[in-house]
Lab assay of single mutants.
Amino acid sequence: SKWSPSQVVDWMKGLDDCLQQYIKNFEREKISGDQLLRITHQELEDLGVSRIGHQELILEAVD
């Protein structure tokens, strides 16, 4: 995926409302499409996504 960080942010805006709070962290870390495809629970935790349910929603959406 050749998504830029801004495309990742646009994609996140289409996800569940409960995930919108994390967008600024993804933006700050400039998460690209390639990074998103390989993202782990630990990396999500580092991005402030501490709730497992929220991590799962992001990982499922990526899949």
Rank of each mutant, 00 (worst) to 15 (best):
L37K: 11
I31L: 08
Q42P: 08
Q55S: 05
L36E: 02
L36R: 02
L57R: 09
L19G: 03
G33L: 06
E45R: 14
Y22M: 00
I23D: 03
R28H: 11
D17E: 14
D10F: 07
S32Q: 09
P5N: 14
S1C: 12
V49N: 00
V62E: 04
G53C: 13
C18H: 05
L44M: 06
D34L: 11
L59P: 04
E56S: 10
G53P: 14
E60H: 11
W3G: 04
D34Q: 14
L57M: 15
H54K: 01
S32W: 07
E60V: 06
Q42L: 07
L37P: 06
R38S: 13
E27Q: 11
Q20L: 11
Q20F: 09
L37V: 12
I23N: 06
D34P: 11
T40C: 06
N25Y: 13
Q21W: 00
E56D: 14
M12N: 00
P5C: 15
S4T: 13
D17K: 09
V62G: 02
L47I: 14
V49C: 07
S1N: 15
C18D: 14
W11Q: 03
G53M: 14
K13V: 07
W3L: 08
D16A: 06
T40Q: 06
F26D: 01
W11N: 04
Y22L: 01
Q42M: 07
Q21S: 11
Q42H: 09
D10Q: 12
S50I: 05
I39G: 03
E27T: 09
E29H: 14
G53A: 15
Y22P: 03
E56R: 14
Q20A: 09
D17F: 09
M12Q: 00
I31S: 02
D10R: 10
G33C: 02
L44N: 01
G53I: 10
Q42N: 09
L36M: 07
E43G: 11
G14A: 06
K13G: 10
Q21E: 12
Q20K: 10
Y22W: 04
W11H: 03
E60W: 04
I23G: 07
Q42E: 11
R51G: 12
I52V: 14
I58K: 03
S6T: 15
W11G: 04
D63Y: 12
S4C: 09
D17N: 12
H54G: 01
V49D: 02
C18G: 09
N25C: 12
K13D: 05
I23T: 12
L15V: 06
F26C: 01
V49S: 02
G33R: 04
D46W: 09
I31A: 01
